[in-house]
């Protein structure tokens, strides 16, 4: 190689290629942005689902509390009434005198017509038990999904 020769050496050719590559990669193409946006949107979807699930969970907690209060009213009614007043017509009386204030909930009261009778431990009397089942139903997050709370109240009496 003579002095002043304009032919590029191997080193200068490599340097030019590297420089060219650097210039080409300096900007981001629109396609890359769109792909990035799509990926970001996909990544945000579970976050949205999480928020919706959290909101539904809180709503269900509220429903459960309200349903429990409705069922507990009947349990307390059984506690307040005399043993003889627990009969088959009690459910109708409860529906009239203690109506469910919110239409979201359906409360069913079932008085077991069968009375359990057993001897007391000292065999000197009779131990009587009546049971009342309370069921409160409401709609879950899905329109066809139903949630239920069931409580059983027992009323006892000892005859001596």
């Amino acid at each position: 190689m003579a002095a002043g020769n304009t032919m590029p050496t191997r080193e200068t050719t490599m340097a030019t290629r590297v420089h060219a590559i650097r210039i080409e990669r300096r900007a981001i193409s629109l396609t890359e942005i769109v792909v990035a946006v799509i990926f970001m949107s996909i990544a945000l979807m579970p976050l949205l689902g999480l928020l919706i699930a959290g909101h539904q969970g809180t709503a269900q907690t509220l429903h459960q509390t309200q349903a429990f209060l409705l069922a507990d009213d009947v349990v307390e009614a059984v506690g307040a009434l005399r043993y003889e007043e627990i009969d088959a017509t009690l459910a109708a009386d409860i529906a009239v005198n203690m109506p469910v204030p919110q239409p979201t909930y359906t409360r069913t009261v079932l008085v077991d017509p069968k009375e359990d009778v057993a001897d007391t431990i000292d065999k000197k009397g009779k131990f009587r038990v009546k049971s009342v089942k309370v069921k409160v139903v409401w709609l879950g997050p899905g329109e066809e999904e139903k949630r239920t709370i069931e409580l059983v109240a027992l009323k006892t009496k000892v005859d001596r």
Binding site: T65, Q66, L69, L70, E76, A77, A80, M98, P101
Partner: peptide
């Protein structure tokens, strides 16, 4: 709004 309702029986001392 969120509504709550509770029936309280006036048992015990009164009855």
């Amino acid at each position: 709004p969120t509504d709550f309702s509770k029936v309280l029986f006036l048992k015990n001392l009164l009855t």
